[in-house]
Amino acid sequence: MSTTVGLASVGADCCAPPAGDAALDPATARDIAQGFKALADPTRVQLLAIIAAQPDGEACVCDLTEPVGLSQPTVSHHLKILVSAGLLAREQRGRWAYYSLRTDPLTELATGLIRSRTAASA
């Protein structure tokens, strides 16, 4: 049986309880949310894109301030958030820190919700 609410059609199974193993576990949900939270700032997305575009796949913090138009401490703060979220790797070389993209966490972030959706429909 189906009833119409406005323009949407709602089936009788719309309120069925979700399959227990199809939902994300709390730890995975937290990890995914942390990644999305880190990407919720346009400057951080821009920093990731700049680093990804580098020929050697890494960038010094000193090279990232001018493209985003922010001071070094502010850029370092954004980079720290991206490192904490697991999206960037940081390597200290003398006085400067170099950052490189960690592609596995980005792939996991992109596919995390899709995997849970696929498991729910299986």
Rank of each mutant, 00 (worst) to 15 (best):
72 Q>I: 08
2 S>F: 13
64 L>P: 01
13 D>K: 08
91 E>Y: 06
74 T>D: 08
110 A>P: 00
46 Q>A: 04
27 A>Q: 06
20 G>Q: 14
13 D>E: 14
54 Q>K: 09
92 Q>S: 14
63 D>F: 08
19 A>S: 15
17 P>A: 15
111 T>A: 03
79 L>A: 09
39 L>V: 02
78 H>V: 06
25 D>P: 03
81 I>A: 07
90 R>Y: 09
98 Y>Q: 08
53 A>G: 09
53 A>H: 03
85 A>S: 09
96 W>C: 15
87 L>A: 07
51 I>N: 02
81 I>P: 01
109 L>Y: 04
99 Y>L: 04
2 S>L: 14
78 H>N: 12
41 D>C: 03
19 A>V: 09
44 R>D: 05
36 F>A: 00
30 R>D: 11
62 C>F: 12
108 E>S: 07
17 P>Y: 11
54 Q>Y: 03
35 G>M: 00
44 R>G: 08
111 T>K: 07
40 A>R: 03
91 E>C: 05
63 D>T: 15
117 R>Y: 07
22 A>Q: 10
91 E>I: 04
87 L>W: 03
58 E>I: 02
72 Q>P: 00
48 L>K: 00
42 P>M: 00
42 P>G: 00
57 G>M: 02
1 M>Q: 13
114 I>E: 10
56 D>V: 03
55 P>S: 00
87 L>D: 12
16 A>D: 14
37 K>A: 12
78 H>E: 13
121 S>Q: 14
95 R>E: 12
